[in-house]
Design a protein around this nucleic acid. Structure first.
Lengths: 220, 220
DNA sequence: ACAATAGTGTCTGTGAGACAGTATCGA
DNA sequence: TCGATACTGTCTCACAGACACTATTGT
């Protein structure tokens, strides 16, 4: 900042765009809204909020997630900041993208109480479809999709897409969806064994062997 | 953005803070400037520039790097965006941090022509020292340091800290500095063998066996 | 010959990949 | 008993870690 008079540089709007991911019907889904106004009227868009002058970026993201999903304590992280000049044809907006991961159960729980036009869309379909999304939102989704596939390999993010207690077949499916390939049961279980602990519960009602529920082991 | 009137949200200044890293004297160094004005007068700070209204974030970062180092074509990537409300006591500034990696040779080359108060500082010393840096810049450096250590394990960033042609002992040293631990020669060489190709040149003048120069293999 | 650093061969343990097998439910 | 899915044992192979060895320069 040395040598610059900040007043010579115009200020700009800063927003957070929110990428709320979940898994539904064995597919990775993302929460999108249909725009009711120009520009990009009727196109699908990421939900987003402007950052208040007395609000941190994380706070804005948390507020936006709360407004869109009703949920307060879900996992989210900053993804990337997009600053193309003409992202928004109306004016200069810097967009700090945040990625949130939430188990479907939690979204269902509140879905009934809300009357927004937000809905879940298949991420692969959105990405490969020719249909245009608002602004640069398709690029943002592509980038997030790529990051998810990467991070699942060396972090625990996948756990945020299942509930507190989960069976291993379900968790494996989440890994497979994020990675985009199928895994061998035995190997998968060996790999995550150190990260989980048994519960006393098992599934029931299925016409096959029950599956045990596990939970994440608290790290020491 | 649905349902929000952007005019209700105040605009803010957006800046890029630049973390220019290099390796000197077998230590990881970063380019810092001494502030000549309040706030934080005389404290060390990251160089930075405000983002122009018709300038993308990447362009602003590139411009800042050019201004500080004179260099145009060096590797850089967006690191993270910091948006605490009181980062800057004067006003609200969103800072998009960029990380640049440059071989010392290139910095030396232009150092003479310039008369800025920028200089290289030992990163570990800055991090562990009690001395305060301007704004939240120490936190930013800590985060970048952590990311570097991570990324060196699964990407090629280390190559950006050596020149076009380099010997393996030198490259290994860079890896060791970034990782913060020493490596076994033989293992290191096996690991990077697929990424490099021999040149016809070797070192000379040292009172021991010469070392061959390599260059990065162009990927197929 | 010696000091010093460059560079290699090879043993071992760990962990991912692949596959075949066993276990337990409902019907 | 059978269909279906849950779960396990074990072989193989690639690769990282560890270490000992050989190679080539200047003095």
């Amino acid at each position: 900042m040395e040598g610059y008079d900040s007043s010579k540089y115009e200020k700009m709007s800063v927003a957070t765009d929110l990428l709320v991911f979940t898994v539904e019907d064995d597919k990775l889904k993302i929460l999108l809204v249909e725009r009711s106004e120009e520009p990009f009227k009727n196109a699908l868009a990421l939900p987003g909020v402007f950052v208040g002058i007395n609000e941190t970026l994380d706070e804005a993201a948390r507020r936006g997630i709360k407004e869109e999903t009703g949920l307060k304590n879900i996992y989210f992280e900053q993804l990337y900041t997009f600053g193309e000049v003409k992202r928004d044809p109306r004016m200069r907006i810097i967009s700090v993208a945040y990625m949130a991961l939430v188990p479907l159960k939690k979204l269902d729980f509140i879905a009934g109480e809300r009357t927004v036009n937000a809905a879940l869309y298949d991420v692969e379909e959105i990405i490969s479809s020719k249909k245009k999304l608002a602004f640069d939102h398709k690029d943002i989704i592509k980038y997030a999709r790529w990051r998810l596939a990467n991070k699942v390999e060396y972090t625990d993010i996948a756990f945020h897409l299942v509930g507190e207690e989960f069976t291993l077949p379900v968790l494996q499916k989440v890994y497979e969806i994020l990675l985009g390939k199928s895994l061998y049961k035995a190997n998968f279980r060996k790999k995550i064994a150190p990260m989980i602990e048994e519960t006393e519960f098992v599934t029931s009602g299925d016409k096959h062997r029950p599956s045990r529920f596990y939970r994440r082991k608290k790290e020491m």
